[in-house]
């Protein structure tokens, strides 16, 4: 039951495959560059994580106050069963200029003046007893890693633990965040070029 020895002309195959793969890469790059170019800008405070776990290989693990969503700010319909879920999180600038989570929902949140809506990565939602949601929800946004040149991670790690690190993030209209700049005590240390 093998098909007769048909084969696509190899040179055409090479052109199609290479062009397709290049297009996929270009699409990925352009998607991110668009967020950097046009996304809404927010600044996020980072919070220390277990220092032992912070520097893994050549990236720094970042964690944010908005990674923990208190049940009190969750509005709207809650999932009835445990399972895969996403949250939409509305952030507004706080006193120091850093953005803080003010509202979260399991459904889309509408855009509002003076606020930005972030979409979390999917996570497994475990409902509490009698359909209540747990006191705190731990979420990720896809901006929890910062790749650094080899050997430069220590400085960032220490700053991170002294809570002296802030991250400037651009957010697309769909809620996808993209790290744009790393600030150390208010001064930019890493600026992300578009490409």
């Amino acid at each position: 039951m093998t098909i007769a020895r048909f084969r696509f002309p190899p040179l055409s195959a090479a052109m199609i495959v290479a062009a397709l793969q290049t297009a996929v890469l270009g699409y990925m790059v352009e998607g991110r560059a668009t967020i950097l170019r046009n996304g809404a800008e927010i600044r996020l405070k980072t919070q220390p994580v277990d220092p032992r776990d912070l520097l893994r290989g050549d990236y720094v693990t970042l964690s944010y106050p908005i990674s923990v969503i208190p049940a009190a700010i969750v509005t709207g319909e809650k999932p009835r069963e445990s399972g895969r879920a996403r949250l939409w999180v509305r952030v507004r600038p706080g006193d120091g200029g850093d953005f803080e989570a003010t509202e979260a929902s399991f459904a889309h949140l509408r855009a509002e003046e003076g606020s930005v809506v972030l979409r979390t990565l999917p996570f497994i939602y475990h409902g509490g007893a009698e359909g209540r949601i747990p006191d705190r929800l731990f979420v990720r946004y896809g901006i929890e890693r910062y790749y650094v040149p080899e050997g430069e991670g220590r400085v960032l790690e220490e700053a991170h633990n002294q809570q002296a690190l802030e991250v400037e993030v651009r957010v697309s209209t769909g809620g996808t965040p993209q790290i744009a700049r790393i600030l150390l005590r208010g001064e930019p240390v890493y600026d992300e070029p578009l490409y």
């Binding site: 890469l25 790059v29 990236y59 946004y141 790749y147 790290i179």
Partner: peptide, 16 residues
């Protein structure tokens, strides 16, 4: 191609 995908992930600090 796989290497290029991971390079893009690294360029834009994608996680998760």
């Amino acid at each position: 191609f796989g290497g290029a995908i991971s390079l893009v992930g690294q360029m834009y600090h994608l996680s998760g």
